[in-house]
Amino acid sequence: MMFIMPILQLIIIPLAADYEIKHLSISVIDQDHSTYSKRLTSKLTSSGYFRLVQYDNSYSKALENVGNGKTDLILTIPAHFERDLIKENKATLALAADAVSNTKAGLGSSFATQIINDFNNEIREEWIRLPRFNDLPQIQITNVNWYNPHIDYHLFMVPGILAILVTMVGSFLASLNIVSEKEIGTIEQINVTPIKKHEFILGKLIPFWVLGMISVTMGMLVAFAIFRIIPQGSYLLIYLFSGVYLLSVLGIGLLLSTFSDSQQQATLFAFFFMMVFVLMSGLYTPIDSMPTWAKVIAYCNPPMYFVKVIRSIFIKGSGFTDMLPEFGAIVVFAIFFNLLAILNYRKRSA
């Protein structure tokens, strides 16, 4: 149970939570019916990003389609598009996007703009007809995506989700375990024994540390088996970071357990912290684009460092020296949370 759930998540989430926008629905309102308008339309649909759902000259029908969710983008090609373009050297197009889904609208219109620009260049080249020597200075931009040449979304998400899963196993299972001892009353019996505080806490840390390491291993196996993702960096480094990171999340778990008296309470705590952990970790949204105050929170968020580290090792193959600052941060977290947990754990009450 403990392993199956995270592994299912690791399999399902990267497949489902995909940022790559494909098959956006587009309505083309062609009021020109010229060669160029047809060429532009076929260029859009052949790009693979767009699926043509409507091709006619009724704008009101297109709006209706947006209303009932059938189409995401409307491209209006006005009458005399071809003529204006050739004669007057410019023509206008209207692009409207359904902005209910922010990312869809943003990405969709930028894809469309890019394609239209491309189309524009093509036309110009055709009309200029091989100049004697460039009388038209041009800057050509070539993109190279380092480390992830095909912008494979899975390569980016799988290591990140793996990091979050380790966080969950580490912090919340440990905290629930101690709180359940409080609930059942076994902690009472333990408290009257001469067992030392640090012995008790170590006894709780070690099994969950081992479980955490096993879940890292299983996560990497799943990453390979399902997504064919193999870390570029060293396995040893992954285990080193996971080991230290687990200590710090276990510390958080222990601290949570000293604050809660029932499993419900601990679960609520866990739920709250999990939201912060996931959303402030840079897993979905880049830290760099956050406002300053949110960045401060993110820098206090241990999973942020681990997500970064695991991604670097998996995708870039970073070495230990590249990640010294992150390593330092994780070590500080580990010491800080465990110390706080030990100080806050009381064998007797006032």
Binding site: I184, G185, T186, I187, E188, Q189, V192
Partner: peptide, 8 residues
């Protein structure tokens, strides 16, 4: 100590 509630 044997608490009133079974706590093994």
């Amino acid at each position: 100590y044997m608490p009133g509630k079974f706590s093994l």
